[in-house]
């Protein structure tokens, strides 16, 4: 099990809470809510160790595409980067 934290300053805050997904094989749970401070924070707990660079690249690209401020929590059970990106986009649609 591994914990990864990513932070970025600035951005337009999300307005609502959004929750989706599940901690199930190949899937992940995403909690997205308005940030306590400003900027975006993503905290990942993943069951699969050793892929921090892939996680960072995936999350950085998401934040590049969406200039948002939000507190995002990801609880992962071996999802692929494609699934991670898709769930993040789905959560953002609900939270905006």
């Amino acid at each position: 099990m591994q914990r990864i934290v990513l932070e970025r300053a600035g951005g337009t805050p999300v307005t609502k809470r959004a929750h989706l997904g599940a901690v199930a094989s190949g899937n992940l749970e995403v909690l997205c809510e308005p940030p306590a401070g400003d900027g975006a924070t993503i905290v990942v707990s993943t069951s699969v160790d050793g892929y921090e660079p892939v996680w960072r690249a995936t999350l950085e690209r998401f934040l590049e595409q969406h200039f948002i401020a939000a507190a995002i929590e990801i609880n992962d059970f071996g999802a692929t980067p494609a699934m991670v990106s898709l769930r993040l986009e789905q959560a953002l649609e609900l939270a905006r």
């Binding site: 929750h19 749970e29 609880n75």
Partner: peptide
């Protein structure tokens, strides 16, 4: 106690299992 209440199991992490909120 929705997921944002973050009432998840305190025992799973120490066993290497990711908890659901």
């Amino acid at each position: 106690l929705d997921p944002f209440a973050r009432c998840s199991s305190p025992y799973l992490a120490e066993q290497g299992v990711v908890a659901q909120r």
